[in-house]
Design a protein around this nucleic acid. Structure first.
Lengths: 186, 186
DNA sequence: GCTAATATGTTCACTAAGTTAACATATTAA
DNA sequence: TTAATATGTTAACTTAGTGAACATATTAGC
């Protein structure tokens, strides 16, 4: 009986992240996580109310990564490319964040806030680029950019496992920024 | 013990579709479906190998609806709008189809085929509109349109439950075709 | 028509996974 | 030093997917 693993909570989150990233969010289960942490399956409940709280924490960290990516980006298109690469590098985390996975995630208002904040940054960036554009045009363009980025992630991911992974698709994946400039970020 | 419900298989699919449409794909479970059909929970297994087979059937029907919508559309943009409206009218079916829901759906090659066929129709339509365009440009544009349509569905759905449902978003939802023409279908 | 094969539904049971409650021990505060 | 709190464990309950054995209905071949 080994008590007081140092910071078990943090360790559980890390393990869950690893499982999600390497396998899928569906594979996250208490017994599996607990086993990897070397504790009993229910130790978890000393640190989280339930499994959704754990998933919420993963989502939170995903948004933090995206936000950091935005801050690090030097151009608008490179930010978009970062987003897309995140979706391709962490497809399972991405699913957890944007996949309309589990209904009840609306119980976490801070996640909604993170999501909205991310979207609003698109408008902010657009306004800096086109100070004279009408607010309505900005918003519509922001929606279009958001849609393009997320839609492309889904598309490239699907293409990965299929024969629609044409030459063009490979080109897009290797030239995300240019693709964005050609199609949407113009 | 009431034997031989007429065409129980079809009835199970209908019930599962209704549950999915009205609640969510997560709410589909054998006991619930069986109860609604008035049979025992395991009667299901005389008609389907497992639950995934049932979900696959729902997805199949979703693609059939989308395909019919394409055939009925008189313009390119109206087809796109149909797609988007499908995503808004049947959000839970849409999740089942495009939500990267359950890993193992790759076990159903015919579903992949339906998906690829739908995408290929975009290229076909584009080629008719722009006979002289280079193949590569067609493909890239097709990707961009696909991304826009699916991205917008996700966006409008999120907006539904949140305060980013701005005036502009409402406008887009009520003027999907015009939005498509403004942003992507041009 | 009778019988064997097949199809369809039921009952029982097992398993995996989320969760709670009671308990035990360690840490911290007073 | 002791009481309160935090953290982990064990046992047990619950829901859900699924398989096996069984029972009854339908159909095909004679």
């Amino acid at each position: 009986m080994s008590y007081h693993k140092e910071n078990l909570k943090e360790r559980l989150v890390e393990i869950a992240w690893e499982i999600c990233a390497a396998e899928s969010w569906q594979k996250i289960n208490m017994r599996y996580v607990a086993e990897k942490a070397g504790v009993s399956p229910t130790a978890f409940y000393r640190h989280f109310k339930n499994k959704n709280d754990l998933k919420a924490e993963l989502i939170r960290r995903g948004y933090e990564m995206l936000d950091q990516g935005r801050k690090d980006a030097d151009t608008f298109a490179s930010w978009g490319a970062y987003y897309i690469r995140f979706g391709l590098d962490y497809p399972n985390i991405y699913d957890l964040m944007f996949g309309n996975i589990d209904s009840n995630m609306s119980l976490y208002p801070d996640l909604e806030a993170q999501h909205n904040a991310a979207f609003n940054e698109v408008s902010v960036a657009l306004k800096l680029l086109k100070p004279d554009a009408a607010e309505k045009d900005i918003r519509i363009k922001a929606v279009n950019i958001w849609a393009s980025v997320h839609g492309l992630i889904g598309f490239l991911r699907r293409g990965d496992s299929q024969d629609i992974k044409s030459e063009e698709l490979t080109w897009i994946e290797n030239n995300i920024e240019e693709y964005l400039k050609m199609t949407t970020f113009n």
